[in-house]
């Protein structure tokens, strides 16, 4: 205590106290905020999955999507969007939306457990027929042709997601996200449901086999080594320009100055 007592009048004492208080409040908030609503799962055993889904829907979704899922000015109708849309949107943490914005941003971890997501998906699927959650078989891309997938990717996906799948900007702050962490099921669901600004690529447009090829190509991009060295985000000339001027040219000028100084 002597150590503290000797320093309590130090000009840094107030700063230290403030820091301790802030860290304490932050840590406390983090504990409370991360406490999941565990009671919901406990009740689930006595009700059917659809009933549970409906209850969760009314609690967490209805304020924007409407009591009958008919849609409001705040959110679109969910009638006919299918289980795949719920699995994609809630599973990736995009829904429930943290705040109004240009578009829903993914959050990790998701805000609901897998069981809860499945229940909500079942409820939304019960409203009207829609795309179902893809099966293991649907997303199995082992036998697909990556090169063919690359052609399909560049024809259908790269204009928004960029040729290397790094994502790209759309209008008014909307964007096509990077695919570097996307899982096969997520990619498949995105194609069949068309989330945010993305168009729907139904099985009539791109058959399952081609979807698997696209997934295979994205998987290739995710695991592809960079034989040329530092990849600079695979974003093309813009990061190359930044690197050129900030690192390379700065170094050359530094050498020039060094040679100039030596002359004196």
């Amino acid at each position: 205590m002597k150590f503290l007592a000797a320093r309590r009048r130090s000009p840094l004492a107030a700063v230290a106290m403030l820091l301790i208080a802030l860290i304490g409040i932050g840590a406390g908030y983090a504990v409370i905020a991360n406490a999941r609503p565990a009671e919901a799962a406990a009740v689930a055993s006595t009700e059917t999955q659809v009933e549970q889904g409906k209850r969760l829907y009314l609690e967490g979704c209805a304020s924007c999507h409407g009591m009958q899922s008919q849609g409001t000015s705040q959110g679109p109708t969910l009638i006919g969007v299918g289980a795949a849309a719920v699995d994609f949107q809630v599973g990736s943490g995009r829904m429930p939306m943290a705040m109004p914005g240009a578009q829903a941003a993914p959050r990790d971890p998701a805000q609901y457990t897998d069981d809860q997501i499945a229940a909500m998906a079942a409820y939304v699927a019960s409203l009207a027929p829609g795309p179902a959650i893809p099966t293991q078989e649907d997303v199995n891309f082992e036998s697909a042709d990556a090169a063919q997938g690359g052609v399909l990717f560049r024809t259908n996906c790269s204009q928004c997601h960029q040729a290397a799948g790094q994502g790209g900007a759309l209008t008014q702050g909307k964007y096509a996200p990077s695919l570097m962490n996307a899982e096969p099921k997520e990619i498949y669901e995105a194609m069949i449901t068309g989330p945010q600004s993305m168009p729907v690529f139904s099985n009539a447009t791109i058959p399952t086999q081609d979807k698997q090829a696209i997934i295979k190509y994205i998987d290739t991009l995710q695991t592809l080594p960079d034989p040329g060295g530092l990849a600079l985000g695979r974003l093309g000339p813009v990061p190359e320009t930044v690197f050129l001027w900030t690192a390379v040219f700065a170094a050359l000028i530094a050498v020039a100055i060094w040679i100039g100084i030596k002359a004196r």
Partner: peptide, 10 residues
């Protein structure tokens, strides 16, 4: 075909 983020050199 086209890629998002297509830029020329600096």
């Amino acid at each position: 075909q086209v890629s998002a983020g297509s830029q020329p050199d600096w």
